[in-house]
Simulated assay, not measured.
Amino acid sequence: MTRSNMALAGALCLLAVLTGVRLLGGDPGIDLQAIFQGDDQEQAILTHFRGPRVILAMMTGAALAMAGTVSQVMLRNPLASPDIIGFTAGASAAAAAAILIFGDISAAMPGALAGGILAACLVFGLAWRDGISPLALVLVGVALNLMLITATDILLSLSPGILASEATRFLTGSFASADWRSAGLMALACLVLGGVLAGLAFPIDRLELGDDLAITLGLAPDRIRFCATVCISLIVAVSVAVAGPIPFIAFLAGPLARLAAARPGTVLGLSAVIGAILGIGADLLATLPIAGARLPAGVFTALIGAPAMLLLLLRLEVDRK
Protein backbone atom coordinates (compact mmCIF):
# COMPACT_ATOMS: atom_id res chain seq x y z
CA MET A 1 0.00 0.00 0.00
CA THR A 2 1.37 3.40 -0.98
CA ARG A 3 1.78 6.22 1.51
CA SER A 4 -1.03 8.13 -0.20
CA ASN A 5 -3.45 5.21 0.24
CA MET A 6 -2.38 4.73 3.85
CA ALA A 7 -2.96 8.41 4.55
CA LEU A 8 -6.39 8.22 2.91
CA ALA A 9 -7.35 5.15 4.94
CA GLY A 10 -6.22 6.81 8.17
CA ALA A 11 -8.10 10.01 7.32
CA LEU A 12 -11.29 8.06 6.57
CA CYS A 13 -11.03 6.25 9.92
CA LEU A 14 -10.58 9.56 11.76
CA LEU A 15 -13.53 11.05 9.87
CA ALA A 16 -15.71 8.06 10.84
CA VAL A 17 -14.77 8.45 14.52
CA LEU A 18 -15.44 12.20 14.56
CA THR A 19 -18.75 11.70 12.75
CA GLY A 20 -19.85 9.11 15.30
CA VAL A 21 -18.86 11.35 18.20
CA ARG A 22 -20.66 14.33 16.69
CA LEU A 23 -23.82 12.34 15.97
CA LEU A 24 -24.10 10.47 19.26
CA GLY A 25 -22.16 12.55 21.79
CA GLY A 26 -22.68 16.01 23.17
CA ASP A 27 -25.47 17.34 25.33
CA PRO A 28 -27.84 15.59 25.22
CA GLY A 29 -26.21 12.31 24.20
CA ILE A 30 -27.98 9.96 21.82
CA ASP A 31 -28.96 6.49 23.07
CA LEU A 32 -28.67 4.07 20.16
CA GLN A 33 -30.74 1.45 21.98
CA ALA A 34 -33.56 3.96 22.41
CA ILE A 35 -33.41 4.78 18.69
CA PHE A 36 -33.67 1.11 17.75
CA GLN A 37 -36.61 0.78 20.14
CA GLY A 38 -38.41 3.62 18.33
CA ASP A 39 -37.93 6.52 20.76
CA ASP A 40 -39.41 9.50 18.91
CA GLN A 41 -37.42 12.14 20.79
CA GLU A 42 -34.07 10.48 20.17
CA GLN A 43 -34.91 9.91 16.52
CA ALA A 44 -35.99 13.54 16.10
CA ILE A 45 -32.72 14.85 17.56
CA LEU A 46 -30.72 12.59 15.26
CA THR A 47 -32.66 13.08 12.04
CA HIS A 48 -33.79 16.71 12.27
CA PHE A 49 -30.90 18.38 14.05
CA ARG A 50 -27.65 16.44 14.15
CA GLY A 51 -27.97 14.58 10.86
CA PRO A 52 -28.23 17.63 8.56
CA ARG A 53 -25.67 19.53 10.64
CA VAL A 54 -23.08 16.75 10.32
CA ILE A 55 -23.69 16.35 6.60
CA LEU A 56 -23.46 20.12 6.07
CA ALA A 57 -20.18 20.31 8.02
CA MET A 58 -18.67 17.39 6.10
CA MET A 59 -19.80 18.50 2.66
CA THR A 60 -18.78 22.12 3.23
CA GLY A 61 -15.35 21.07 4.47
CA ALA A 62 -14.82 18.64 1.59
CA ALA A 63 -15.98 21.13 -1.05
CA LEU A 64 -13.83 23.97 0.27
CA ALA A 65 -10.84 21.63 0.51
CA MET A 66 -11.18 20.60 -3.13
CA ALA A 67 -11.56 24.23 -4.22
CA GLY A 68 -8.51 25.24 -2.19
CA THR A 69 -6.11 22.51 -3.28
CA VAL A 70 -7.04 22.97 -6.95
CA SER A 71 -6.51 26.74 -6.80
CA GLN A 72 -3.13 26.30 -5.06
CA VAL A 73 -1.83 23.84 -7.65
CA MET A 74 -3.39 25.67 -10.60
CA LEU A 75 -1.75 28.95 -9.59
CA ARG A 76 1.47 27.32 -8.35
CA ASN A 77 1.17 29.16 -5.03
CA PRO A 78 0.35 27.52 -1.65
CA LEU A 79 -1.23 30.80 -0.49
CA ALA A 80 -3.66 31.00 -3.42
CA SER A 81 -6.78 29.67 -1.72
CA PRO A 82 -10.28 31.16 -2.21
CA ASP A 83 -9.95 32.77 1.24
CA ILE A 84 -6.97 34.80 0.06
CA ILE A 85 -7.79 35.69 -3.55
CA GLY A 86 -11.19 37.29 -2.99
CA PHE A 87 -13.78 34.62 -3.80
CA THR A 88 -14.90 34.11 -0.20
CA ALA A 89 -14.77 37.84 0.53
CA GLY A 90 -16.92 38.55 -2.53
CA ALA A 91 -19.58 36.07 -1.47
CA SER A 92 -19.49 37.35 2.12
CA ALA A 93 -19.73 41.03 1.14
CA ALA A 94 -22.66 40.41 -1.19
CA ALA A 95 -24.43 38.27 1.44
CA ALA A 96 -24.03 41.02 4.03
CA ALA A 97 -25.26 43.63 1.55
CA ALA A 98 -28.32 41.51 0.72
CA ILE A 99 -29.18 41.09 4.41
CA LEU A 100 -28.86 44.83 5.02
CA ILE A 101 -30.79 45.86 1.90
CA PHE A 102 -33.69 43.42 2.20
CA GLY A 103 -33.71 43.17 5.99
CA ASP A 104 -33.94 39.39 5.95
CA ILE A 105 -31.33 36.72 6.64
CA SER A 106 -32.84 34.57 3.87
CA ALA A 107 -31.50 37.08 1.34
CA ALA A 108 -27.97 35.96 2.21
CA MET A 109 -28.15 32.87 -0.02
CA PRO A 110 -28.84 34.56 -3.40
CA GLY A 111 -26.53 37.40 -2.38
CA ALA A 112 -23.65 35.04 -1.64
CA LEU A 113 -24.15 33.14 -4.88
CA ALA A 114 -24.11 36.35 -6.92
CA GLY A 115 -21.19 37.85 -4.99
CA GLY A 116 -18.95 34.80 -5.30
CA ILE A 117 -19.47 34.57 -9.05
CA LEU A 118 -19.00 38.32 -9.53
CA ALA A 119 -15.77 38.30 -7.49
CA ALA A 120 -14.38 35.47 -9.61
CA CYS A 121 -15.29 37.34 -12.80
CA LEU A 122 -13.56 40.48 -11.52
CA VAL A 123 -10.41 38.64 -10.51
CA PHE A 124 -10.24 36.72 -13.77
CA GLY A 125 -11.04 39.77 -15.89
CA LEU A 126 -8.57 42.11 -14.20
CA ALA A 127 -5.80 39.52 -14.36
CA TRP A 128 -6.31 38.80 -18.08
CA ARG A 129 -3.53 40.07 -20.32
CA ASP A 130 -3.57 37.96 -23.51
CA GLY A 131 -3.83 34.99 -21.17
CA ILE A 132 -3.82 34.35 -17.46
CA SER A 133 -0.66 34.82 -15.45
CA PRO A 134 -0.89 32.90 -12.14
CA LEU A 135 1.07 35.63 -10.35
CA ALA A 136 -1.20 38.38 -11.74
CA LEU A 137 -4.31 36.47 -10.71
CA VAL A 138 -3.02 36.04 -7.14
CA LEU A 139 -2.01 39.69 -6.82
CA VAL A 140 -5.33 40.93 -8.20
CA GLY A 141 -7.17 38.51 -5.93
CA VAL A 142 -5.34 39.65 -2.82
CA ALA A 143 -6.00 43.31 -3.61
CA LEU A 144 -9.68 42.64 -4.31
CA ASN A 145 -9.93 40.57 -1.13
CA LEU A 146 -8.74 43.52 0.98
CA MET A 147 -11.13 45.90 -0.80
CA LEU A 148 -14.10 43.60 -0.24
CA ILE A 149 -13.29 43.07 3.44
CA THR A 150 -13.13 46.84 3.88
CA ALA A 151 -16.42 47.30 2.01
CA THR A 152 -18.07 44.74 4.29
CA ASP A 153 -16.81 46.55 7.39
CA ILE A 154 -18.17 49.84 6.06
CA LEU A 155 -21.56 48.27 5.34
CA LEU A 156 -21.80 46.85 8.85
CA SER A 157 -20.71 50.15 10.42
CA LEU A 158 -23.36 52.17 8.56
CA SER A 159 -26.22 49.73 9.17
CA PRO A 160 -28.88 49.73 11.91
CA GLY A 161 -27.96 47.72 15.00
CA ILE A 162 -30.34 44.77 14.52
CA LEU A 163 -29.51 44.21 10.86
CA ALA A 164 -25.79 44.68 11.52
CA SER A 165 -26.03 42.08 14.29
CA GLU A 166 -27.77 39.61 11.95
CA ALA A 167 -25.18 40.13 9.23
CA THR A 168 -22.28 39.88 11.69
CA ARG A 169 -23.60 36.60 13.08
CA PHE A 170 -23.93 35.22 9.56
CA LEU A 171 -20.39 36.32 8.68
CA THR A 172 -18.83 34.38 11.56
CA GLY A 173 -19.60 31.12 9.76
CA SER A 174 -21.60 28.40 11.48
CA PHE A 175 -23.38 25.09 10.86
CA ALA A 176 -25.90 25.70 13.67
CA SER A 177 -28.78 26.61 11.35
CA ALA A 178 -28.37 23.50 9.19
CA ASP A 179 -31.42 21.77 7.77
CA TRP A 180 -31.88 19.12 5.12
CA ARG A 181 -32.36 21.77 2.42
CA SER A 182 -29.01 23.45 3.05
CA ALA A 183 -27.25 20.13 3.61
CA GLY A 184 -28.68 18.73 0.37
CA LEU A 185 -27.68 21.83 -1.59
CA MET A 186 -24.12 21.66 -0.28
CA ALA A 187 -23.92 17.91 -0.94
CA LEU A 188 -25.13 18.45 -4.51
CA ALA A 189 -22.56 21.21 -5.09
CA CYS A 190 -19.82 19.05 -3.59
CA LEU A 191 -20.66 16.05 -5.76
CA VAL A 192 -21.28 17.88 -9.05
CA LEU A 193 -18.63 20.59 -8.88
CA GLY A 194 -16.19 18.30 -7.07
CA GLY A 195 -16.71 15.78 -9.87
CA VAL A 196 -15.80 18.42 -12.44
CA LEU A 197 -12.68 19.34 -10.48
CA ALA A 198 -11.77 15.65 -10.27
CA GLY A 199 -11.99 15.50 -14.06
CA LEU A 200 -9.70 18.54 -14.26
CA ALA A 201 -7.23 17.22 -11.68
CA PHE A 202 -4.92 15.52 -14.19
CA PRO A 203 -4.41 18.56 -16.46
CA ILE A 204 -4.22 20.88 -13.43
CA ASP A 205 -1.42 18.75 -11.98
CA ARG A 206 0.43 19.21 -15.28
CA LEU A 207 0.06 23.01 -14.95
CA GLU A 208 2.26 22.85 -11.85
CA LEU A 209 5.16 22.10 -14.20
CA GLY A 210 4.65 25.38 -16.08
CA ASP A 211 2.48 26.57 -18.96
CA ASP A 212 5.07 25.92 -21.67
CA LEU A 213 5.39 22.26 -20.79
CA ALA A 214 1.60 21.96 -20.44
CA ILE A 215 1.16 23.35 -23.96
CA THR A 216 3.67 20.84 -25.35
CA LEU A 217 1.51 18.12 -23.77
CA GLY A 218 -1.49 19.38 -25.73
CA LEU A 219 -3.19 21.24 -22.87
CA ALA A 220 -4.78 24.70 -22.96
CA PRO A 221 -3.76 26.37 -19.66
CA ASP A 222 -6.09 29.39 -19.92
CA ARG A 223 -9.11 27.22 -20.70
CA ILE A 224 -8.30 24.86 -17.85
CA ARG A 225 -7.89 27.75 -15.41
CA PHE A 226 -11.14 29.30 -16.55
CA CYS A 227 -13.14 26.08 -16.07
CA ALA A 228 -11.54 25.43 -12.68
CA THR A 229 -12.12 29.02 -11.57
CA VAL A 230 -15.82 28.77 -12.42
CA CYS A 231 -16.14 25.61 -10.32
CA ILE A 232 -14.16 27.06 -7.43
CA SER A 233 -16.20 30.27 -7.35
CA LEU A 234 -19.47 28.30 -7.40
CA ILE A 235 -18.32 26.01 -4.59
CA VAL A 236 -17.30 28.98 -2.45
CA ALA A 237 -20.54 30.84 -3.22
CA VAL A 238 -22.71 27.87 -2.24
CA SER A 239 -20.71 27.23 0.95
CA VAL A 240 -21.03 30.86 2.04
CA ALA A 241 -24.73 30.84 1.13
CA VAL A 242 -25.55 27.85 3.38
CA ALA A 243 -23.07 28.24 6.25
CA GLY A 244 -21.48 31.67 6.03
CA PRO A 245 -17.74 32.03 5.43
CA ILE A 246 -15.80 29.16 7.02
CA PRO A 247 -12.20 30.40 6.76
CA PHE A 248 -8.96 28.51 6.21
CA ILE A 249 -10.34 25.03 5.43
CA ALA A 250 -9.63 25.71 1.75
CA PHE A 251 -6.19 26.98 2.69
CA LEU A 252 -5.18 24.14 5.03
CA ALA A 253 -6.52 20.95 3.47
CA GLY A 254 -4.29 20.86 0.39
CA PRO A 255 -0.94 21.37 2.17
CA LEU A 256 -1.93 18.83 4.83
CA ALA A 257 -2.88 16.29 2.16
CA ARG A 258 0.35 16.80 0.22
CA LEU A 259 2.33 16.47 3.44
CA ALA A 260 0.51 13.28 4.46
CA ALA A 261 0.76 11.72 0.99
CA ALA A 262 4.35 12.94 0.48
CA ARG A 263 3.66 13.93 -3.10
CA PRO A 264 2.82 17.10 -5.05
CA GLY A 265 -0.34 17.82 -6.98
CA THR A 266 -3.96 18.29 -6.04
CA VAL A 267 -4.27 15.00 -4.07
CA LEU A 268 -7.99 15.66 -4.45
CA GLY A 269 -9.51 12.68 -2.62
CA LEU A 270 -7.31 13.00 0.45
CA SER A 271 -7.78 16.77 0.47
CA ALA A 272 -11.57 16.33 0.45
CA VAL A 273 -11.47 13.91 3.39
CA ILE A 274 -9.15 16.20 5.37
CA GLY A 275 -11.49 19.10 4.62
CA ALA A 276 -14.43 17.06 5.92
CA ILE A 277 -12.43 16.29 9.08
CA LEU A 278 -11.72 19.98 9.59
CA GLY A 279 -15.40 20.80 9.10
CA ILE A 280 -16.63 18.16 11.54
CA GLY A 281 -13.87 19.00 14.01
CA ALA A 282 -14.75 22.70 13.97
CA ASP A 283 -18.43 21.91 14.48
CA LEU A 284 -17.56 19.56 17.33
CA LEU A 285 -15.59 22.34 19.03
CA ALA A 286 -18.52 24.69 18.43
CA THR A 287 -20.69 22.53 20.71
CA LEU A 288 -18.35 22.94 23.69
CA PRO A 289 -19.27 25.69 26.18
CA ILE A 290 -16.49 28.26 26.56
CA ALA A 291 -16.97 30.83 29.32
CA GLY A 292 -20.66 30.00 29.31
CA ALA A 293 -21.09 30.46 25.55
CA ARG A 294 -20.68 28.43 22.37
CA LEU A 295 -18.54 29.93 19.63
CA PRO A 296 -19.35 29.33 15.93
CA ALA A 297 -17.31 26.90 13.83
CA GLY A 298 -15.77 29.70 11.76
CA VAL A 299 -14.01 31.05 14.84
CA PHE A 300 -12.23 27.75 15.43
CA THR A 301 -11.12 27.31 11.81
CA ALA A 302 -9.70 30.85 11.96
CA LEU A 303 -7.91 30.14 15.25
CA ILE A 304 -6.26 27.09 13.68
CA GLY A 305 -5.76 28.49 10.19
CA ALA A 306 -4.10 31.81 10.99
CA PRO A 307 -1.10 30.29 12.85
CA ALA A 308 -0.86 27.58 10.18
CA MET A 309 -0.65 30.27 7.51
CA LEU A 310 2.14 31.98 9.45
CA LEU A 311 4.05 28.69 9.73
CA LEU A 312 3.66 28.10 5.99
CA LEU A 313 4.99 31.57 5.22
CA LEU A 314 8.01 30.96 7.46
CA ARG A 315 8.62 27.58 5.82
CA LEU A 316 8.46 29.13 2.35
CA GLU A 317 10.98 31.77 3.43
CA VAL A 318 13.34 29.08 4.75
CA ASP A 319 13.00 27.04 1.55
CA ARG A 320 13.70 30.14 -0.55
CA LYS A 321 16.97 30.73 1.32
Rank of each mutant, 00 (worst) to 15 (best):
R258A: 05
F202Y: 13
R294S: 14
G265S: 11
G269L: 10
G281K: 00
L213K: 04
V240Y: 01
A198P: 03
V192Y: 07
P203W: 04
G292P: 07
A198Q: 14
S177Y: 15
R223M: 14
V299P: 02
V196R: 11
V192F: 11
P245S: 03
I274Q: 00
A178E: 09
A297G: 05
T216D: 11
F248L: 05
L200M: 13
V196D: 10
I215M: 11
G199F: 08
A282Y: 02
D211S: 08
I246C: 00
L193H: 03
S233M: 06
I290E: 09
L219R: 10
F300T: 07
P245D: 04
A189K: 03
A201W: 04
G210W: 00
G292H: 06
L200C: 13
G298S: 03
I290F: 14
A228W: 01
L200E: 06
G244T: 04
C227V: 12
W180H: 14
R181M: 13
F251Q: 00
G184P: 09
A260Y: 04
I246N: 01
L191K: 12
L207E: 00
L259D: 10
V230C: 10
P296K: 05
I204Y: 01
I232P: 02
F251W: 08
A286W: 01
D283K: 09
I232Q: 03
G199K: 09
D211F: 01
S174V: 08
S174K: 06
V273H: 04
G244N: 05
P255S: 12
L252V: 14
L252N: 04
L234K: 08
A250F: 07
G281M: 03
G298R: 00
A250N: 06
A237Y: 01
A228R: 04
T229L: 12
G298T: 02
L252M: 15
A237R: 02
G194A: 08
T216L: 09
L207G: 00
L219W: 10
G279T: 02
L256A: 11
P255Q: 08
A297D: 04
I215E: 14
I232N: 00
R294A: 13
I274V: 14
T216V: 13
F248K: 03
L197I: 07
A237S: 12
C227W: 14
A257L: 05
I277D: 02
A250D: 03
P245L: 02
D212W: 07
P255T: 11
S233D: 06
R206S: 14
I224D: 04
I215K: 12
R223V: 13
A198D: 12
F251K: 02
T266V: 14
I235N: 01
D179T: 13
A201S: 15
G210F: 02
S239G: 06
P264T: 08
R225M: 07
I277Q: 06
D222A: 13
A291C: 13
L219I: 08
V196P: 15
G244E: 00
G210A: 03
G244H: 03
A260W: 06
D283Q: 10
P264D: 07
D222N: 15
A286P: 10
A243C: 15
D205E: 14
G194R: 00
P296S: 09
V242C: 05
T216C: 15
G269M: 09
I215R: 15
A291K: 13
I246M: 05
A189L: 03
L252E: 01
A198K: 15
P289S: 10
G195F: 09
P221T: 02
L268F: 08
L234E: 01
